[in-house]
Nucleic acid binder design. Structure first.
Length: 416
RNA sequence: GCGGAUGUAGCUCAGGGGUUAGAGCGCCUGACUGUGGCUCAGGAGGCCGUGGGUUCAAGACCCAUCUUCCGCCCCA
């Protein structure tokens, strides 16, 4: 094979495209039921946008970005996530005028130069929601509720939200110091590299999978104890609201998001069906991002949901919808009836049915076999007998009954 | 970026130096000359991931490379 798809990319094959169409249309309907309007941003942006938004310490920026110089020597990056481009667009087009709340949704592909694994691709797809202009805990709750309910509405059982609060800059930096101090003895045992990494982003220690680290940090200080009063109150009201809304959650201090722009409540929904890439979606509050990108001082909350991971989970739970089947197969016996068959197929399509015809005009037997394989329920048969009577035979493949009737009656019958 | 597996027919996989590379499922044709599924018979389909090497002889052994999968890392 001479050419292969690029590493970490996937073709959505004809046998699977209906699954993508299904979850996309469900997401669009769900988002719009909360009043979110779709925003489509370009595939590539200024490299600097992502460095400014996500922070240099996040791997998504420092190591995984697909970036290049274009012919005009601009430093370009393929978007690694959806929020920064959405906020760039929001600022540029003033999508959230003072005193208003903007609700944006997106469906986009993202690019990260990673080592591929199941549920971890170099080109991945995300659904996203962003609510801009409200600092209320009700906004946090709306995003979290919408995320959890989306999975529920698709039939994914026992959706539990893992919730944490990172607080504002001040309490976070006090916490970082405290955590680093606590972990130092352990880090000294683990070597120079571990120390460097921990210094860069101490919070990352918390979602380590190293058993030694997990054990060692059992008694570590918890960020919730470092929150100032406003942050604490915000978090309490968020939890109350989620409880009222009937959204199941668990406070999980180990949840720290990878992107640096998060400032307040953060959350993740995981699934045991995903192996080590366990996060189905993740998000949180990012009150400083828009300002840092040169826009107005607008508080925001958002979520990004992995589409490939959703499909993996749905497959394992048997939640994949069946592929749609064509309504009618128009078979003809003898090439002299080709025109009549073409005409019937066209009429059927005009009345909203999907109709298939065999271009190779193989034997009637073969045409019926094709129809059976395609899962079609009805086959219209046109041959000498039908032509003589100006009628068509309609065969129902599910009960093997068949009947001679007019075209009009046939269409009515197939439409059911 | 690190470690471990993996690649043979459309699909799932067997074959681990020696004729012409196999099975099941799927596909095509026929038995049934205008009727699918079931049965039976026949048939098509392979650069054995790619490139190099060892050998009288390589699908098999060696080297390189690519893919996919798993663990780490990271995250959606």
């Amino acid at each position: 094979m001479k050419y292969q798809g690029q590493r970490g990319t996937e073709d959505v094959l004809p046998t699977q495209s209906h699954l993508w169409q299904y979850v996309e249309s469900r997401f669009r309907a769900h988002a719009s039921s909360y009043g979110y309007l779709e925003l489509r941003t370009p595939t590539f942006e200024d490299y600097d946008l992502f460095v400014r938004s996500s922070g240099e310490s996040s791997e998504a920026v420092s190591k995984q970005m697909y970036d290049f110089r274009d012919k005009g020597d601009r430093h370009i990056a393929l978007k690694p996530e959806g929020t920064a481009p959405a906020m760039r667009s929001l600022i540029q087009h003033n999508l959230c005028p003072q005193g208003t709340v903007a609700r944006l949704s997106y469906i986009t592909n993202c690019f990260r130069y990673e080592r591929p694994q199941k549920g971890r691709l170099r080109e991945l797809h995300q659904f996203g929601l962003e609510i801009v202009g409200s600092g209320s805990p009700l906004a946090d709750a709306e995003i979290i509720e919408a995320s959890a309910r989306f999975y529920q509405s698709l039939g994914v059982p026992s959706v539990v939200v893992l919730l944490n609060c990172l607080g504002n800059d001040e309490c976070r930096s006090r916490y970082r110091t405290a955590l680093l101090d606590f972990a130092m003895p352990l880090l000294n045992e683990m070597g120079e590299e571990a120390i460097e990494k921990a210094k860069k982003n101490p919070l990352r220690l918390l979602d380590s999978k190293d058993p030694q680290m997990i054990e060692g940090l059992k008694e570590a200080p918890v960020i919730l104890d470092f929150l100032d009063d406003p942050s604490r109150e915000h978090f309490e009201r968020l939890k109350d609201t989620l409880t009222f809304l009937g959204i199941e959650f668990r406070v999980a201090p180990e949840i720290v998001r990878g992107l640096d722009y998060y400032t307040g409540a953060v959350f993740e929904i995981q699934s045991e069906h995903l192996g080590s890439q366990s996060a189905l979606c993740g998000g949180g509050r990012y009150d400083n991002l828009i300002k840092e990108l040169g826009g107005p001082d607008l508080p925001s909350v958002g979520v990004g949901m992995g589409v490939e991971r959703l499909l993996i989970v749905m497959e394992q739970l048997g939640l994949w919808p069946e592929a749609p089947k064509p309504d009618l197969f128009v078979a003809f016996a003898g090439s002299e009836h080709e025109r009549a068959a073409l005409g019937l197929a066209a009429t059927a399509r005009n009345s909203g049915l999907t109709a298939i015809i065999d271009p190779d005009a193989k034997s009637l037997k073969s045409q019926l076999r094709q129809a059976d394989r395609l899962g079609v329920r009805f086959v219209a048969i046109i041959g000498d007998d039908e032509a003589a009577a100006s009628m068509v035979t309609l065969r129902n493949l599910s009960d093997s009954s068949q009947e001679l009737m007019s075209e009009g009656a046939l269409l009515e019958r197939v439409k059911g």
